[in-house]
Simulated assay, not measured.
Amino acid sequence: MTDPISVPPAESAVLAQWSSDALTPLVSICCTTFNHGEFIRDAVHGFLIQKTSFPFEIIVHDDASTDGTTEILEELRSIYPRLIRLVVQDENQWSKGCRLLANHVFTLARGKYIAVCDGDDFWVDPRKLQLQVDFLETNQDFVLCFTDSQGVIEDTQEVTQLTARRQDLSSLELQSTTSLFTSSACFRNEIKIWPDQLTRAPYGDLVMWSLLGDFGKGKFISEAQPIRQRVHPAGVHSMQSKNDQVANAVITNALLAAYRLEERESALALLHVQNIILLSIKLYGLRLGTSMLYRALRKLRLVKA
């Protein structure tokens, strides 16, 4: 496993590699963090080591951290004032039910492309962004690309296998909430208004892939080194029980089904209903799962009461 980068390049060295004006970034790196004081330097350092021919900006959204994360970010911004933009919440948005932070972060992005990374994950390959942008620039039918990821158990530093897709994805596969490694993704900045009714979906990343699937396909970039995803007690997803993960996926698919119905996209709504069927049976068993599904369908007005 590659160790986190301890000494990133100076700001002048990052700016010097670019062939165009840094005031017009091609890529906006968007990082969300909350109480990642132990990890946030590694995340930001992973952005700063990127070797690109194009300018990028770094937008970090701090969801009202209380463990010193904000102070670390302020220090980093003072060292890299032309690269880092910092958004600090006064109140924690996650605890208020806002799961999809797109309207707090993505709407600030000036880049043609957006790359995302959680504050407790980090990149180790300095070619990551260049590989992804080079592909998207020459393949207009793809809306996003992503790389592999390795899980790192924080206590032991043991590398663990993570579950997600490691292959190219069709538009339909993205729309139907296929899971991929979130902190590895780079996508076109196509969605200017993110639907308010989806902001409370437990899995905001699945919402993102579904909406982006409206604009194209997904490419797995196998040439890049895997990103690192930490598995630790404060991890929102990795430490959830399997039942909780399935239940959150059911809720996310239900919200997406309702949204697609509102948009008169019944075929896509039925895809999410199909996911709910399979997930409900997995979580509750055939009889109870079928009963809960029927109630969900009635609520969505797909069957009569």
Rank of each mutant, 00 (worst) to 15 (best):
L86K: 03
V250N: 01
A258Q: 14
I221S: 01
V159C: 00
L23F: 03
Q130H: 12
L206H: 06
S65Q: 06
Q161H: 11
I40D: 02
T147G: 11
A22H: 14
R77Y: 07
L206S: 05
F142H: 11
D148F: 00
R301T: 04
Q150T: 00
T147Q: 05
T252V: 11
P55L: 04
W209T: 06
T252D: 03
Q157G: 06
R85W: 07
A22D: 08
E11Y: 10
W209H: 03
I79V: 12
G46Q: 02
L300A: 10
L108W: 05
S95R: 08
L180T: 14
L288I: 13
G285C: 14
F215E: 00
H36R: 15
L302K: 11
A234M: 06
Q157S: 08
Q240N: 13
F106T: 04
P126Y: 02
H272K: 13
F181H: 03
Q93T: 13
W209S: 01
W18E: 01
L302C: 10
I84C: 05
D3R: 10
L144M: 13
A258W: 07
L100Y: 08
H272A: 08
S28P: 10
A16W: 06
L255A: 02
Q157I: 00
D168A: 08
A115D: 05
L26D: 02
E75D: 15
V273E: 10
K128N: 02
P226Y: 04
V88D: 04
G97L: 07
Q130T: 10
T252E: 03
I193K: 09
M292K: 15
D134K: 05
Q229T: 14
S210W: 05
L211W: 02
R228P: 01
S238R: 08
G119T: 04
D63I: 07
F54S: 10
V143P: 04
W123R: 01
H104V: 00
Q274N: 14
T24S: 14
D196K: 15
Q17G: 14
A185V: 14
S210C: 01
P25H: 10
C117K: 01
T160D: 04
F142W: 11
L100M: 04
I276K: 12
I79T: 15
I49W: 02
L76D: 02
T290E: 14
S28V: 08
D125I: 01
I281N: 03
A10E: 13
V27Q: 15
M208W: 09
L101Y: 03
S176I: 12
